[in-house]
Design a protein around this nucleic acid. Structure first.
Length: 637
RNA sequence: GCCAACGUAGCUCAGAUGGUAGAGCGGCGCACUCGUAAUGCGCAGGUCACCGGUUCGAUCCCGGUCGUUGGCUCCA
């Protein structure tokens, strides 16, 4: 039980008027305010609140109790106005500012239905002038706390891990293994010989809360700067990056690829704004409790938020699209730049950023059968994406969903699992707590053994109705979509690049050469003339490659051949050609092949055909930097 | 937001009980014109993250801020 000093204390005063002046911020977590003075003349209740450390366990329960009590008093006193006033000095052991603000906001929110509520700014030194009525009921103190049961309830709601009650593994042959969080390591599936089961074990461990301490700085951070891809930006906030030409080039190629997937799937590309008005009800519903994760912006016409996900704008967009059953499912695609105001200390390299680019697909499906077809198509597409670009065979599939959906669709789901050719891990819950009945996450297991989510496909059964998205049926009436599929080929471009770089780190550990897939390599062929007099010949060769749709450049700096090779190797260039008299005479090229670590004689046509074969059906963009290496500036290092 | 470590030249890093600093690489210049991972010589680069305190004097000691990384929390 709680002892007295752990209970939240409040002081309520029935007043004739109150005036508040905010002087200066008392802490970093101070709210942003525009008005520094506030006055209310007339009957009102001022509630001074000190939030306790112990309230961190169940802030919402405490707020609910306080709101109920305040409401009762307001009724008795026939007052319509309440001022919620943060007063930390009521407690010896205050909660963290976040919880305090949460309690204050929640209390105000709960009261605002029936009363006119204002909140004094949080985190400021304030002066106030107050006139108390002085009648017997005009002052009171309150003590509030959650009892253990309520506290447990809120905790359970808060802890996502505990909402899952059933855990299932599926092997490559479609066999099902049910496990428990405590004894999952004993599951027979981990005795199988294929190495991918080690990854599965790692993933299940991470998910069930036995994560590994990496203690190392991630490799991708080193690479992203060394290779002149992405870098920290001191002009902006932490978690926002500047992109160098090579990094931006890779980003755009990945976006090209994502757009291609979407188009092939049949989606139409559209685009929404990045600013959301805060007073939009329907979006407010989606925002839920996550206001503190949002970036606030104010153009002087009231508060707005930077979009934190694609749905809050994507759904209203689809709501207003008219389509008939003949055009169903409605498929749209968007490159959505999203902003999340992540806590200090959460942001790390490209793994967790505050601004990221999602490639988001949606399909509004008329019925379950339609949705199943699309769901399967997307899963297979993303399987290939994971294998071809991101993580080769170093990934597994995580699932979340309801027990009911799993049991009713077991055969279908297992069929998909088998198609993925990697094992699956299902976390299942007795009740649907989100908009989806089932979703999967394509998880890459990285060098430090943590996992990074890349693609996802989600089966949404709620938002068709909630947002009134639907098709016009034969009867001429609009019918809400039974299922809306959400799918993101690249959950974020930043994380995708992170995953690619982390996979390169694994390659290095396994003794393989570091390199991007050839279609993503900024330079595919580096030409190194043996001396200056061959630069012209090299230039011609370079132009020939470029015309053939291959990114070739030429190292025309006055270095030795050894130096040019070394520099090209440091840039992870897949093909290096040293050109001189021999090449000019014979027309044959001596090709240094990075993957094979060997030199092979090839003709221009042979090399072109080889590269074309390796990059077949992948997007192409020309060199992001000057063809002559001597003309390039240094962006880093 | 909490705890810890770190912040010296463009990069990687040395360094001094407190007397304002050095290497390698890179850059620039000159010479070299070279056949598969570093050609030679020379030159220029620093408010030692920022702000304040102690001190005759601080890059070094103390406090704060910012930034980076790890851990916790969190990740709709």
């Amino acid at each position: 039980m709680f002892c007295e000093e752990h209970l939240m204390k409040t002081l309520g005063i029935h007043t004739n008027y109150i005036r508040i002046t905010s002087t200066e911020p008392a802490m970093k977590a101070a709210e942003e305010i525009t008005e520094h003075s506030y006055a209310y003349d007339g009957d009102c209740i001022v509630v001074f609140i000190g939030v306790e450390k112990s309230d961190e366990e169940a802030p919402n329960v405490v707020a609910k109790k306080l709101a109920a009590d305040t409401l009762k008093r307001a009724e008795t006193l026939k007052v319509k106005k309440v001022i919620v006033y943060p007063y930390v000095h009521l407690t010896q052991d205050p909660s963290n500012p976040r919880t305090a603000l949460q309690v204050l906001k929640k209390t105000a929110e709960l009261l605002s239905g029936q009363l006119d509520v204002d909140r004094a700014p949080f985190g400021w030194y304030k002066g106030f002038e107050i006139s108390a009525k002085g009648h017997p009921l005009s002052e009171w103190s309150g003590v509030f706390t959650a009892d253990e049961e309520e506290e447990k309830k809120e905790k359970e709601e808060k802890a996502p891990r505990e909402k899952f009650t059933k855990f299932v593994l599926v092997d490559l042959d479609g066999n099902i293994f049910e496990i428990t969080p405590d004894e999952f390591t004993k599951c027979g599936i981990f005795n199988k010989k294929e190495p991918v089961y080690k990854l599965l074990k790692r993933f299940v461990g991470n998910e069930l809360g036995h994560g590994v301490d990496t203690e190392k700085t991630p490799k991708h951070i080193e690479f992203m700067r060394q290779q002149e891809l992405v870098d920290y930006c001191e002009v902006s906030e932490k978690g926002h990056f500047k992109w160098y030409p090579k990094g931006l080039f890779i980003q755009k190629l990945i976006l090209d690829y994502a757009a291609r997937i979407a188009h092939e799937w049949g989606a139409m590309e559209m685009k929404n704004p990045i600013i959301i008005k805060s007073d939009n009800n329907i979006v407010g519903e989606l925002m839920g409790e996550f206001h503190e994760r949002d970036y606030k912006v104010d153009g002087g016409r009231g508060t707005c938020y930077l979009r934190y996900a694609s749905d809050p704008l994507g759904f209203p967009f689809m709501q207003n699209v008219r389509f008939s059953y003949k055009q169903s499912p409605l498929k749209v695609y968007e490159e959505a730049s999203c902003f999340r105001n992540e806590q200090e200390g959460e942001v790390s390299g490209l793994k967790r950023v505050r601004n990221f680019m999602m490639t988001d697909m949606h399909a509004a499906c008329a019925n379950v059968d339609e949705a199943k077809v699309e769901f399967e198509t997307l899963c297979k597409r993303f399987r290939d994406l994971m294998n071809d670009i991101v993580a080769r065979d170093r990934w597994v599939l995580g699932w979340e969903g309801t027990i009911e959906f799993f049991e009713q669709n077991t055969e279908w789901l297992i069929g998909i699992c088998k198609e993925m050719r990697v094992p699956s891990f299902f976390k299942l819950m007795p009740e649907m707590t989100h908009y989806y009945a089932i979703k999967n996450e394509f998880q890459s297991i990285t060098e430090d053994e943590s996992n990074i989510q890349v693609s996802t496909v989600q089966w949404d059964v709620k938002d068709g109705e909630r947002f009134n998205i639907g098709h016009v049926d034969e009867d001429g009436k609009k019918h809400p979509s039974a299922v809306i599929l959400h799918a993101s080929s690249f959950g974020s471009i930043e994380r995708t690049l992170c995953t690619i770089l982390e996979n390169i780190a694994i390659d290095i550990n396994q003794g393989r050469p570091a390199m991007f897939p050839v279609w993503l390599a900024p330079t595919q062929v580096r030409i190194a003339p043996v001396k200056d007099s061959f630069i012209e010949f090299g230039e011609e060769l370079c132009a020939k490659f470029n015309n053939a749709g291959i990114r070739a450049d030429i190292d025309d700096r006055p270095d030795t051949v050894g130096k040019k090779i070394r520099n090209a190797e440091k840039e992870w260039i897949p093909y290096i050609l040293v050109v001189g008299q021999q090449e000019m005479d014979t027309g044959e090229l001596m090709v240094r092949i990075r993957t094979a670590r060997e030199q092979v004689k090839m003709t221009f046509d042979e090399l072109t055909a080889k590269i074309k074969g390796e990059t077949a059906s992948m997007p192409f963009r020309p060199l992001p930097l000057p063809r002559r290496v001597s003309r390039r500036p240094i962006f880093f290092g």
